[in-house]
Amino acid sequence: MSAKDSAENTEKTGSTENAENSENPEVTATGGGRAGVLIAAVLLLACAGLVGYGLLDTEEKPKPSSTPTAAVTYEVTGDGTAEISYLGPDEDGRATVVRDAELPWKHTVRVPLGETPTVAVVLGEKGGQAACTLAIRGQHVQRATAVGEFGRATCSGELPAAGT
């Protein structure tokens, strides 16, 4: 094969193995296209794998609790943002905290009977005014207001144990 034939073959295949052609910038540049296509194909396969994992995720969903619960609605009104903590569907009985919650904010959860549903609001350093309200089974139970820099308010209510 002549040097000219070798150069034409290198241009067609994108191979730069022939040392005679390594000085030709056009021949060397075509080898990068194949690597780019390979990288794109690998990325495409990775994305398809992630999508497939999301669609085929067979992890069991949490089983419904055998403990009787009641619907509790927490609401915080006002302007700006606040830190809100509330008793939610946490197995350990710990509060759920929402930082920098945009006001107004409202959330309904199922709380186990016998627990004390509570919502607390803390304003930031900019202060302002916010009010929390608590409703159990659709009935208003309590309202409190937080005012000023780092103002705080807490609302809680009675949620009788099952059978009472």
Rank of each mutant, 00 (worst) to 15 (best):
L43Q: 08
P68Y: 00
A82T: 02
G138L: 09
I39P: 08
E75R: 13
A130G: 02
L45S: 14
K106F: 02
W105K: 10
R94C: 09
T154E: 09
E8K: 10
R99I: 08
V109N: 00
T164R: 09
V42Y: 00
T69A: 02
L43C: 06
G49S: 00
I136V: 02
G88D: 05
A70T: 01
E102S: 09
A19W: 01
D79T: 15
V121Q: 00
G78A: 03
L134D: 00
L44V: 05
V76R: 04
T108G: 11
T58A: 13
G33P: 09
N24L: 05
G32L: 14
A7D: 05
L113V: 14
V109S: 01
K63L: 15
E60C: 04
G54V: 11
S66H: 03
A144P: 03
N18Y: 00
G14L: 03
V141Q: 08
T67M: 13
V122C: 10
I84F: 01
T67S: 08
T81P: 02
S6E: 11
D57K: 06
P64D: 11
S2M: 07
L43E: 08
R143N: 14
G124R: 05
D5L: 14
E102C: 01
L134K: 02
A130L: 02
S65T: 07
G31W: 08
G128N: 03
G14M: 05
R110Y: 06
K12S: 09
G163D: 02
F150R: 08
R152A: 11
N18K: 00
S65C: 14
C155Q: 03
W105M: 15
D100G: 07
A35M: 15
I39N: 04
V121L: 04
D5N: 14
T164N: 06
L45W: 11
S22M: 15
L43A: 11
T118L: 12
L113K: 07
Q129R: 11
L38R: 12
Y53A: 10
G36L: 02
A71G: 12
